[in-house]
Design a protein around this nucleic acid. Sequence first.
DNA 1: CAGTGGTCTAGACCACGGT
DNA 2: CCGTGGTCTAGACCACTGG
Lengths: 248, 248
Amino acid sequence: MWAGQQLVYRKGTAAYHQIAEYIRLQIRAGALRPGDRLPPEDELCKLFQVSRTTIRAALNELVLEGLIYRKQGRGSYVAEPKFEVAYPKLLSFTEEMAQKGLRADAKVLSLELSPASQEVAEKLNINPNDLVIVIKRLRLANDEPIGMQTVFIPQSLCPDLQNEDLSQSLYAVLANKYGIKIYAGIDTYYAGVLNSEEARLLRSTPGAPAFIVERITFTSEGKPIEYVRSCMRGDRYKITLWLKREGE
Amino acid sequence: MWAGQQLVYRKGTAAYHQIAEYIRLQIRAGALRPGDRLPPEDELCKLFQVSRTTIRAALNELVLEGLIYRKQGRGSYVAEPKFEVAYPKLLSFTEEMAQKGLRADAKVLSLELSPASQEVAEKLNINPNDLVIVIKRLRLANDEPIGMQTVFIPQSLCPDLQNEDLSQSLYAVLANKYGIKIYAGIDTYYAGVLNSEEARLLRSTPGAPAFIVERITFTSEGKPIEYVRSCMRGDRYKITLWLKREGE
DNA sequence: CAGTGGTCTAGACCACGGT
DNA sequence: CCGTGGTCTAGACCACTGG
């Protein structure tokens, strides 16, 4: 049987945290293996010289972490290690390329202030003809053109965006200069073909496959921040996601 | 001040659940609004006629739900309602269509047993030349051809798959007949064009945009179940996902 | 300093699972 | 029936926050 009784409690940290930490280490070290039953709670009380409430607080922590599970009338058991899948994250182009070990750049093709079309107004939940900043950028990875993006963003959100350096990540500018933090977004993916202008800028040929991404991003209050339409070279761009069958 | 003192505890449910439920209702009903401070814990003890442990168990439940938050030395407060985004789920074609209100069908084009190619073996983590079942199916939504799928699945997993009805959801067959539960998967999306065979089957034209989905699915132990390559009509198929910026 | 949540004790009874 | 986790009590002291 494993020894927990020598635990000397550090001050400044709750005893139950320290007990949980101790058991966590035993599991990670392999002294407690998946399927093993933990000693009964009253025995743990004696081992760790604390009351049952404290033991239960420690075990609760481990249950929430998924490290152990309890069965009423049976005992507490070490859980099977799970095949863990992280949920996909909303990434900027810059972050996406960084993840692949590539350097992302942006070349601003145009920047203008114009009234929102019906379509853009609907996506951004503003009134038609409200002013939006429209930015067209060519996106490159290791100096190779990968796609072009058109960003629509309400002018009211970032009045002086024109004066910022837009050859970097727009998300970084929004966060650093305007304190706008993106919480989530809706992505829509579909396939299309490059038109002649896109083909020229992307150094491809008209009619070549295009991967289209439309994205609307939101703050944590659900307020739309930007609408982006990206037209990516079909032969240079793909998206890979881990998805769980049962969410949340 | 709101009244909690009339609570009559039902038997068979823990008091702290009932107290949590009561407070939850007060919040949902608007009697307690975001930012409001809850009465101190000792006052709640008197109101609900229970000990502090019980009150704290109830509040813990609400904290975990994100309905309230605590500040040591200050009090417990009703949290701001969050703009909640559910993580995307791995869906079968059938489920995906059902979500859009469409009826999905499958028409089996071919079904054969053959040794795994190097590529397929790598994706399924099996040895090259191990036998895999290869199924080609035309996928329809409301009787319209949307795409075609080629599924590779190790024969060892489902020896008699040939005898099953494959005009329905493959995931349903795997779950019901073989007890194989899909836990997660890797999806890769990119753009391409239809070749002549695909164009004929999909009643489109060669060279038209195609949305390609490659998927490998896994059990909760991380064992690969199937590898699927889907070639979807670019003009009839798109994918929409909600993504969070900071995940899990 | 007073008020609040955070931690902890010692003990009790209940509900469930298996023998 | 026994052993286990689930719930609950009454009371104590600590740690943080604000005035």
